[in-house]
């Protein structure tokens, strides 16, 4: 989902930056408030950021013969709510744009919007929806993290399609082309991300009951509840 440096026309780059900026600011405020009001969650917040750092550094091979990224933003979105991940995701993307020539400064806004706004919100919303439907817990987390990853890449496909419509079939045709580049590669990787997210969440439900209770987002397991 990293649109390379200079690969969005200036107007598009500016618009996506303007759209992403308020989310990052809101995320920074939320993180600030969280650290002030519930300092005991500091370490879990760092671990969620670290999970995104780790997963987005790994280029994983896929069945299509290409490689791509996990995003790692679903976990934090499910624990702390999606706005927190806007800040943490933006930090990851800055690191990659400045040190790894991966993504870019002009496309930072668009990339933040896809990875750190759309992905976390989709993961968060799907977890909420699945919980309301009384889906088994692990399945809900799996589908939420997987969907967050796919949504990020479909957003990137949409951003590229808006900037580079197909001369014959327009924005929609172009979107399908970009989505066809991403989707088949992304699907197994999204599944890997979903599985890794479930294993971390399982651990948290076992050992981090206090933090989960303070966050009121994910229920702790019954064993941890009793302990």
């Amino acid at each position: 989902m990293h649109i390379a440096e200079g690969f969005l026309p200036p107007l598009h780059a500016a618009i996506w930056s303007a759209l992403a900026a308020p989310f990052v600011v809101a995320g920074a405020r939320r993180v600030n408030r969280l650290l002030r009001d519930q300092p005991q969650l500091q370490l879990l917040l760092a671990a969620s950021g670290a999970f995104a750092f780790l997963l987005s550094a790994l280029k994983l091979p896929s069945i299509t013969g290409s490689s791509s990224h996990a995003t790692g933003v679903g976990l934090g979105a499910m624990l702390f709510g999606p706005s927190v991940m806007a800040l943490l995701g933006a930090i990851v993307l800055c690191f990659q744009a400045l040190l790894l020539a991966h993504g870019g400064l002009t496309t930072l806004g668009a990339n933040v919007f896809a990875l750190a706004v759309v992905g976390p919100w989709v993961a968060f919303a799907i977890l909420r929806g699945a919980r309301r439907l009384h889906a088994p817990f692990a399945a809900a987390v799996f589908v939420a993290a997987l969907s967050g990853n796919l949504a990020t890449y479909l957003t990137t496909a949409g951003q590229l399609a808006l900037a580079f419509p197909d001369p014959a079939s327009g924005v929609m045709g172009s979107f399908l082309k970009f989505a066809a580049v991403f989707a088949p590669t992304q699907l197994p990787l999204a599944a890997v991300e979903g599985l890794l997210t479930v294993s971390i969440v399982n651990f948290l439900r076992e050992y981090s009951g206090d933090e989960l209770r303070a966050l009121e987002v994910l229920p702790a397991s019954r064993a941890a509840e009793a302990g």
Partner: peptide, 28 residues
């Protein structure tokens, strides 16, 4: 899944595991 994907993908003709990001930029 990761290892399986690598085995399947590596057998394809264009199985160089180029990044999907760079493929998207090629599509541009």
């Amino acid at each position: 899944i990761a290892i399986g994907s690598a085995l399947v993908g590596g057998r394809l003709r264009d199985g160089g595991f180029a990044g999907s990001d760079s493929r998207a930029m090629a599509a541009v």
